[in-house]
C-alpha cells in the first residue's frame, strides 16, 4: 500500500490500558498490522509522534473530567474514523459504578485535598460527546475482533462483529451449557458475543464483559437467576459490572435495588 497506508492514532482516556495493549498483544499479526497501517500516534508503543490529522483514531477509556471533554472533541476534529475500544469507552466502564453514587463523597474520602480534584459527576462513554463510527465491546476487547476491524477498514468492508448472545458462540463451539446442565449463574443469554464464549468454555458463567446483546431481556435473566437460588443483591452486582451503566443492564440493576 506504500504511502497510502492509513494513519492510525491510539488515544487513552480513563481506563486501565488493557484494550490498547490488545493491539500489541496481536504478536503474530503485529508486524503485518504495522506494515498495513502507519502507526502515527501510540504513546504506549512508541515515543515517535507523527502530527495529525489521522485517518483512524482508536479511543480507549471513558470521559471523566472537563479536560477529557475538550480532548475528545479535538480528537474527533482531527480524525477521519473514530473507533472506540472496550467497555470503558462504550459504557463508562467499571468506574461508572460511581454514577450510582455521589462522586463528591468519594472524593472527600479518598483525597487529602479534594479541592484540587476536578472531575465530572459521572463516567461517560465516548458516544455521549462525539459521533463514534464503530464501537468494539469487551473488558478487554478481543484481539481477533480488533484485527477484524483493521482488516475490514483496509478492505473497505463492514466488519463481522456480531451483536448476538454469547449463547450462540457457546452453541457453535458445542459447549455444554453451564446454566442448564451446571446450574451456574451465567449472563451469556443477555451478553453480546465476541470473547469466543471464554468463561463458559472453562465451566464458568459469563460475567457480561461485552455488555448487553442487541435484544437482551434482562428481567427474564433476573428470573432465571432467582430460580437458581441467587440472591437479588448478587444479581444486582452481576449486572453492575464492567458495563453496568449501559442499558438495559443499568435498568435491570436499578430494579433490584
Amino acid at each position: 500500500m506504500g504511502n497510502n497506508r492509513p494513519k492510525l492514532a491510539v488515544w487513552k482516556f480513563a481506563s486501565c490500558d488493557g484494550c490498547q495493549l490488545s493491539l500489541l498483544d496481536c504478536e503474530d499479526e503485529l508486524l503485518a498490522v504495522a506494515e498495513a497501517v502507519q502507526i502515527a500516534y501510540f504513546p504506549e508503543a512508541t515515543r515517535e509522534v507523527v502530527e495529525g490529522p489521522y485517518d483512524v483514531s482508536f479511543v480507549e477509556g471513558s470521559v471523566t473530567t472537563p479536560h477529557d471533554e475538550e480532548r475528545i472533541r479535538e480528537i474527533r476534529e482531527i480524525s477521519g474514523i473514530v473507533i472506540t475500544l472496550g467497555a470503558c469507552a462504550t459504557s463508562g466502564g467499571i468506574q461508572a459504578l460511581r454514577n450510582f453514587a455521589d462522586v463528591q463523597e468519594f472524593t472527600n474520602i479518598v483525597y487529602a485535598n479534594p479541592q484540587y480534584i476536578d472531575t465530572l459527576d459521572k463516567s461517560h462513554p465516548i458516544s455521549d460527546y462525539i459521533k463514534v463510527d464503530f464501537e468494539l465491546r469487551g473488558c478487554p476487547i478481543d484481539k481477533y475482533q480488533l484485527l477484524e476491524v483493521v482488516i475490514s477498514l483496509l478492505a473497505g468492508k463492514r466488519p463481522n462483529i456480531p451483536t448476538h448472545s454469547v449463547c450462540m458462540d457457546c452453541k457453535l463451539k458445542m459447549n455444554t451449557c453451564v446454566l442448564v446442565a451446571g446450574n451456574e449463574p451465567c449472563l451469556g443469554p443477555v451478553t453480546q458475543a465476541g470473547c469466543g464464549a471464554l468463561c463458559p468454555s472453562y465451566n464458568r458463567g459469563c460475567y457480561g464483559c461485552f455488555g448487553p446483546q442487541d435484544s437482551a431481556n434482562t428481567d427474564s435473566m433476573t428470573e432465571v437467576w432467582r430460580h437458581l437460588g441467587v440472591a437479588d443483591e448478587t444479581i444486582l452486582q452481576a449486572f453492575r459490572g464492567f458495563n453496568g451503566f449501559l442499558e438495559p443492564f443499568k435498568g435491570a440493576s436499578e430494579r433490584l435495588e
Binding site: L147, I151, S165, M168, S215, A216, N217, S220, V224
Partner: peptide, 29 residues
C-alpha cells in the same frame, strides 16, 4: 416474549433448524 431471552439456544439445538449466514473471513495478506 416476556420470558424469551432471544438467546437463540432453541434454534441452535433444534435438529431441523437450518438457517445460516455467509461471512467472509479476511486475512491481512
Amino acid at each position: 416474549a416476556e420470558r424469551c431471552l432471544a438467546c437463540s439456544n432453541c434454534t441452535m439445538v433444534c435438529p431441523t433448524c437450518f438457517c445460516m449466514t455467509v461471512e467472509d473471513v479476511n486475512d491481512l495478506d
